[in-house]
């Protein structure tokens, strides 16, 4: 006891005590609003639970129903998958192109960077309301602009075939500028001598891009691909405000269906099971991406 006291009196001990004190808000928050809900969520997922009555344990029934007997579950998984597969490649290549564009050393380029970034500050409900209007099939801006080029635009949000591409398009507008900044910083971090080396070897613009830019950017591209996939799995507000899952369930995304189950039908146990399936899917997909990433991501100095 005396020894402990001696230690506490030393600087190290005092610093450690202070460390735990400064940490304490997070510790409380983690236990009350993180760990406890997570454990309870797992428990609820094994129950029938409508909030009004106590949870009733039913084993794996929720999972069984979801995986074998609920057609909307499959639809929501499919919709989310299609949305992700459409969105991620476009988001990455699109914002990379923007970054290359604003990486030119011309006068006034800073103004363009600001202009490109501007849409990124519009999010959530406002974003949804604006695009609901832009996508109006007869008098909306999107079809108006397509009309300038002689293209008769689709019905967008009112068409089951075009509702997901519409949301992807909107997403690209709203995040392109923010991701652009990330890629721009990475582009500017590439040392000039690497490009000069390619020049000495007689390589042109393509060789520079292929052998310097791409490998040097690969860690950032990889990180944002992983994150973008996770974000895409979470799509919710747009669909809730703009389409309510329609038309013909074409935008019934995973989290929208989960929300409806939990807060419209009050099937909290069922929705909890959905949340855990999503968590497992997210983990599995992320692990797979890290495995695949090892093949193409170039880390300087190994790892």
């Amino acid at each position: 006891m005396r020894q402990v006291w001696e230690r506490l009196k030393t600087n190290r001990g005092r610093e450690a005590t202070a460390g735990y004190l400064f940490l304490s808000p997070w510790l409380i928050g983690f236990f009350v609003f993180g760990l406890y809900p997570m454990v309870m969520s797992l428990y609820y997922s094994l129950c029938r639970f409508d909030v009004l009555r106590v949870p009733q344990f039913i084993g794996l029934e929720n999972y069984e129903t979801l995986l074998t007997a609920d057609p909307y579950f499959g639809i929501s998984v499919w919709n989310t998958l299609v949305y992700t597969v459409l969105r991620v490649p476009f988001a990455i290549t699109g914002s990379l192109l923007l970054a290359v564009l604003v990486n030119q050393s011309v006068r006034g380029v800073k103004w363009f960077r600001t202009a490109y970034f501007l849409p990124s500050i519009i999010t959530g409900v406002v974003l949804s309301v604006i695009w609901l209007w832009l996508f109006n099939p007869s008098v909306g801006l999107v079809n108006e602009v397509l009309g300038w080029f002689g293209i008769a635009g689709p019905l967008w949000l009112q068409s089951p075939d075009w509702s997901k591409p519409a949301l992807v398009l909107m997403g690209l507008w709203s995040i392109g500028g923010a991701r652009m900044i990330v890629f721009l910083a990475a582009l500017q971090g590439i040392p000039d001598h690497l490009y000069e080396a390619v020049e000495i070897d007689g390589g042109g613009a393509w060789a520079k891009f292929r052998h310097v830019t791409l490998p040097m950017l690969s860690p950032v591209i990889f990180l944002w691909t992983v994150l973008e996939v996770i974000f895409s799995f979470q799509v919710f507000t747009e669909a809730y405000v703009m389409t309510q899952g329609g038309p013909l369930n074409s935008t019934l995304f995973y989290n929208l269906y989960l929300y409806y189950k939990a807060f419209d039908d009050f099937e909290m146990g069922y929705a909890s099971a959905m949340a855990w399936i999503l968590l497992v899917i997210t983990l599995v997909v992320t692990v797979i991406q890290f495995r695949l990433g090892k093949r193409w991501v170039h880390y300087e100095g190994g790892v």
Binding site: P37, M38, S41, N255, L279
Partner: peptide, 10 residues
């Protein structure tokens, strides 16, 4: 990395 949905209901 934890999705909000996992803790939202509890």
């Amino acid at each position: 990395m934890l999705p909000l949905q996992v803790i939202m209901i509890p």
